[in-house]
């Protein structure tokens, strides 16, 4: 990437910038909660899931579908037990590892690749643009789950393969949005001004266009997070995704489905985890969009109570 113009890089300035960001985060209460929630979640995924692995996989047939809020039991049973009597809370903790890894990797791969291809399709020659777009059309015209089924039928189901499949099927979303934005931004006058100065295509794409489309892309990515989690669970449900005893939230929802009328908590708690994660990401991306835009940043700097 092109070198950026000077910014004072001594430690003091860096600390100052970091503090300013923290302050702006503190000003937006929703974003602050979201950030804390996500931090805790990542902590749980990294540490908690390993510590609870044994507890979470231990079957206890007498405690099948144990109802939640029975505080006489061990704390891992507070959210109830599943069809094999395993503690739901511990299993949610355990599942967070796989879930977050698959969703985060798939989303970030598709975000990076889609964004990159979109920038190229939007800014370079017609031929390249057509080539990229037609490939995207092919991916899009295929129902994404069907595509995943075909690929995973040929490849052995593993975490890596699922990530690859999910990433590929989601690329066109980012690609097409990025391209559409680029087509609009490239006509703006400051792009012409940069060309007049002699800026290379690389510099114009990465220094002038990319920063403007990033907030949109990140917003789409956070929304897509939930979709990817559910798509992964559909694949698992079909038996070509994550295989038990491996576990993800989506798979937990799917496994709880037959018991919905008798033991709602089997699907409800992992479903709630999915919702809260997506919501937090969304709130945080909303905050990020405002902070990244110099014309809107003052809303956070002066501590406006209304959000963006």
């Amino acid at each position: 990437m092109a070198k950026s113009p000077p910014t004072a890089k001594d430690n003091n300035t860096r600390r100052f910038v970091f503090n300013a960001w923290l302050l702006m985060l503190a000003r937006d209460r929703f974003a602050l909660f979201a950030a804390i929630f996500l931090l805790v979640l990542v902590g749980v995924a990294l540490v908690g899931s390993f510590a609870l692995e044994d507890v979470a996989t231990k079957q206890n047939l007498r405690g099948r579908n144990a109802p939640p809020f029975d505080f006489n039991k061990d704390w891992v049973f507070w959210l109830g037990g599943d069809a094999l009597g395993r503690p739901l809370l511990a299993r949610i903790f355990l599942a967070s590892r796989n879930t977050l890894m698959i969703a985060a990797s798939a989303v970030s791969f598709s975000l990076i690749i889609g964004c990159f291809l979109g920038l190229i399709a939007g800014y370079t020659s017609k031929f390249v643009s057509h080539l990229i777009l037609r490939v995207a059309d092919v991916i899009m015209s295929f129902p994404s789950l069907l595509l995943a089924v075909i690929i995973l039928y040929m490849l052995p189901p593993s975490v890596i393969n699922i990530i690859v499949v999910l990433a590929i099927t989601r690329i066109p979303i980012y690609l097409r949005t990025a391209r559409a934005e680029v087509l609009e931004i490239r006509e703006r006058m400051f792009i012409q001004a940069a060309t007049v100065m002699g800026a290379s295509n690389k510099r114009i794409i990465f220094r002038h266009i990319l920063p403007i489309i990033i907030p949109t892309m990140v917003t789409i990515a956070t929304l897509d997070f939930a979709f990817v989690m559910l798509a992964e669970s559909s694949l698992s449900f079909l038996g070509i995704g994550i295989q038990p005893p491996e576990i993800t939230w989506g798979l937990m929802v799917a496994q709880g489905r037959p018991y919905l009328t008798t033991a709602w908590w089997l699907s409800f708690w992992p479903g709630l985890a999915i919702i809260l994660t997506t919501l937090s990401l969304n709130l945080l991306s909303n905050w990020l969009r405002v902070v990244l835009d110099p014309q809107q940043r003052w809303r956070m700097e002066i501590g406006d109570q209304k959000n963006g």
Binding site: A2, P5, M189, Q192, M197, G198, A199, P294
Partner: peptide, 30 residues
């Protein structure tokens, strides 16, 4: 050697860059 000043400065200056970045960009390129 040949530079341009555009009609509408609010359009021809990248809204996400500071004045320092805007002017010194010329030296990044050259």
């Amino acid at each position: 050697d040949i530079q341009m000043v555009f009609q509408d400065p609010s359009q021809s200056l990248n809204p996400r860059m500071t004045v320092l970045q805007l002017i010194s960009e010329a030296w990044v390129i050259h």
